[in-house]
């Protein structure tokens, strides 16, 4: 049996931006899935605050994702049949303590595109709707899997800017998986995964602003 992760021992402090770096196959997606409540570890424990994620039922994990977690994916995964506002409402309708959808879209700078369908938005705009959708529930943790992977540098920077703001203004912990090492410069903490094990944890004393990141 091949283990995607072995002997990972890790604490992620609340309120930080954490970047998870690693080559493909290093286990970073598996780690993200376990932390995000999409998968369970075969052994060991994963805790969110005091709750053991590994011990939760499917329904419990669903509840965890619904109440605490926001996701942003490389390919946005918007509902093509819902407008920008409706895509955000999809989440605010079921969240406990959401912000108004308009505010979420305002935070990502899309006030003027509220009633556009995904087919009428550019890639960067679609990704920003995805971020608005993820933050509208005021999540405790925001998981981003290659959020800028499909974007050009200017749009990519803008998206990172939004993530930075969300972290600063809402206090959400942001966990970003990427293979672009330069993005690590904006993180509080950088974790490198090598062959399923933690290679190095680096705490950035000085963080760069997204605009200063080299692309």
């Amino acid at each position: 049996m091949v283990h995607a992760l072995r002997g990972v021992d890790l604490d992620i402090p609340e309120g930080e931006i954490v970047v998870l770096l690693g080559a493909s196959g290093s286990g970073k997606s598996t780690l993200l899935n376990i932390l995000g409540g999409l998968d369970r570890p075969t052994s060991g424990t994963a805790r969110f605050r005091d709750a053991d994620l590994g011990a939760m039922t499917d329904a419990g994990l669903t509840r965890f994702r619904r109440d605490h977690v926001g996701f942003v994916f490389q390919f946005y995964n918007l509902m093509p049949s819902l407008t920008a506002r409706e895509n955000v409402e999809l989440v605010t309708e079921i969240a406990e303590n959401p912000m108004p959808p308009e505010r979420a879209l305002d935070l990502v700078g899309l006030t003027k595109r509220l009633d556009h369908f995904p087919s009428q938005l550019s890639g960067g705009e679609q990704q920003r709707v995805a971020i608005a959708r993820a933050i509208a529930k005021q999540p405790d943790v925001l998981f981003c899997d290659e959020p800028t992977g499909a974007l050009d540098s200017a749009t990519g920077r803008a998206v990172l800017e939004v993530l930075n703001d969300v972290n600063a203004e809402l206090g959400a912990t942001v966990l970003m998986v990427t293979h672009a090492a330069n993005i690590a410069d904006m993180a509080h903490r950088v974790i490198r995964l090598v062959d399923g094990q933690i290679g190095q944890v680096q705490v950035n004393e000085a963080r760069l602003k997204p605009a200063e990141i080299e692309w």
Partner: peptide
């Protein structure tokens, strides 16, 4: 490109506004 739904239904009416998002999908 995402499938184009812009020419379908807007749900702007009084009934339409009350529909939840899954129903709209």
């Amino acid at each position: 490109a995402p499938a184009d739904y812009s020419k379908t239904v807007t749900f702007a009416g009084p009934v339409g506004r009350r529909l939840d998002q899954p129903t709209r999908i």
